[in-house]
Design a protein around this nucleic acid. Structure first.
Lengths: 348, 348
DNA sequence: CTGAAAGCGCTTACAG
DNA sequence: CTGAAAGCGCTTACAG
């Protein structure tokens, strides 16, 4: 059963010899090609099991002329959203025999651009980028032909394949939930400044308008980056400027929401009694904190799967028209927005 | 400067031809071998720059008979401690031309054992394992010869290379800090049940004994896993059982500390005024939450570097006597334990 | 110090 | 459906 640990690893030839077939046939079986009789397939499989054969990926990739590696570029792996996304990408890539080279940019624009240009220590077959500052112009100016998929909320205007949740709908759903909780003065922390397309701000405004509630610029606060400190600072600034505090708050990420809650509490405001809060991302802490956080949960597994399919499609067909796909999301209602019941018990 | 994107990738031969030397010489330059004159080296480097050459790792690894891949096995990447550790390991591995295959066990013992046996979809050159349930016996029973480094607080009794912070000292430091804050009734959440060696419980007890404070079993609460929910549950159970609540609390991880704080607050106890709390790990949330969390920060970068060096040493010299190394840690004092000042301002 | 050649373990046309 | 052979791009003894 178990092979001698000192023995050299079995090769394709060894399997072929045992099964009494040619290398080509073993290769056909392993790669799932047709034109192999059922009997032969069974015999080869048995030989593979017997010697515990696993293909040498270096040899395979060398022969195929591919690196067998895709890069996943994220701001920081330490941010749980990206960590769990990375976990799903690794999982889906494994099923395709690909390695995932994880690369952190630290949210730095220059690092994001370098990644876009394929500046990696090794060759890669594809690139999945979740950027914070990259613009459509950066993507258009790209001098590299490596298959590329963009992730994240920004609208890159069909300049490359893109997959994300429907951020307008998600933000609208979050805001509608606050309205249902009885909130009438709802702030948004993390709206993007001015000119840039901001689907989450769009959804937020749509919900307010549909409820005939005016959109107040002083309640829409921009932030730089998505860190908790930023959320806290922006919320403090808002509380300093406006006379009456908001009764609801939609934060652009859970992390920002945690910072916002911190700012609210330091001002003596209670969550959810005084201010109901909704975040975005469903990071694990969302249910570990007090109060547990109501949030929008994107389907990370779907994002990973679709991104990999897009990469495969690009590898197969070369230059194609960029596509934009949406994946599902879900609103998870927890304590931070439970104004009507106020039970203090988590619903998730 | 930039190569034609349609052109095939430059090879070693191309560089050799341009530089007017043999492949061997180029290889020598790339791999930093001696016996290359400075002039030749410069010429080769120029040729490499000119064509933008990057070695084909598949070919290199095939020729060297190595996979060029190490596996990093962690419970869950989504837990920020492991995510940031992974980031450091990737960084250090990159410097050595290695890929890191990240593998999640979900904290499942069977999955941890399978990883130990090298059950990966591909061949690997080394294995770094941060396990939750693995015992020394599991490691001793291993039938695989792949170089292995164990991470984490558990004492595996020199059954394999191991790197971690000095957990006894770290726990002692954390507990001493609580004593300095005036705490006299200090609980520990996450002590391991009975028979198993538990360095953090050991350090906690050492600090109490040195201060002539009795160790009360009812204040030492075991948990299963390291999740926030567990910390919350264990803390609730403790509060239910003991008459007088503790005035200090040391949690085995930050995550557990967050759960504990939640339980304390639900009972109307204030942190740090009623109960000062110290966690362990320095996850990013530790400073995003209210109150910000005092915690022990391990030097993750040092852990990664030493683990990789151990792997290299094992690859080079085959069977060697297992070594155990300690890396530095630091106590980061923040709001959750600031009883003397009580200023409500973060110190980090 | 450098060159020519074999070999790593696969895949893939090309014949049969 | 299967076999023999070339080739992927490196590294590494082996000669010089």
């Amino acid at each position: 059963m178990t092979a001698d640990p000192k023995a050299p690893r079995p090769r394709l030839t060894d399997v072929a010899e045992i099964a009494g077939v040619s290398m080509k046939t073993v290769s056909n079986v392993i790669n799932g090609y047709v034109h192999v009789t059922e009997a032969t397939r069974t015999r080869v499989q048995a030989a593979i099991e017997e010697v515990g054969y696993r293909p040498n990926l270096s040899a395979r990739n060398l022969a195929r002329g591919r690196a067998g590696v895709i890069a996943l570029v994220v701001p920081r792996l330490e941010m749980p959203y990206f960590a769990s996304l990375a976990g799903r990408v690794i999982e889906k890539a494994e099923a395709r025999g690909w390695f995932v080279l994880i690369h952190e940019t630290g949210g730095d624009l220059a690092a994001e651009r370098a990644a876009l240009e394929g500046h990696f220590p090794q060759r890669i077959d594809g690139l999945i980028v979740s950027a914070q500052h990259l613009t459509p112009a950066d993507v258009r100016a790209r001098g590299d032909r490596t298959p590329l998929v963009l992730l994240g909320e920004q609208d890159y205007g069909h300049v490359a394949d893109h997959v994300a949740i429907d951020n307008v709908a998600a933000a609208r759903t979050a805001t509608e939930h606050l309205l249902e909780q009885g909130c009438r003065r709802i702030a948004m922390i993390g709206a993007r400044p001015g000119e840039i397309e901001d689907p989450r701000a769009e959804g937020y405004q749509q919900a307010l308008q549909a409820a005939d509630i005016p959109v107040l610029p002083e309640l829409m606060r921009p932030i730089h980056g998505n860190l908790g400190e930023e959320g806290e600072r922006a919320t403090q600034a808002m509380l300093d400027e406006v006379g009456e505090p908001p009764d609801g708050l939609f934060a652009v990420t859970d992390w920002v929401a945690l910072g916002a809650i911190r700012a609210l509490q330091l001002r003596g405001l209670h969550v959810p009694e005084d201010v109901a809060v909704v975040g975005f991302d469903d990071i694990p802490y969302a249910r570990a904190v007090t109060p547990s956080l109501t949030t929008v949960a994107p389907d990370r597994s779907a994002i990973a799967e679709i991104a990999l399919r897009m990469l495969e499609a690009q590898s197969a067909s070369g230059e194609t028209e960029p596509v934009d796909e949406s994946v599902p999301f879900e609103l998870l209602v927890r304590e931070s927005s439970a104004r009507r019941t106020g039970s203090g018990r988590s619903s998730a």
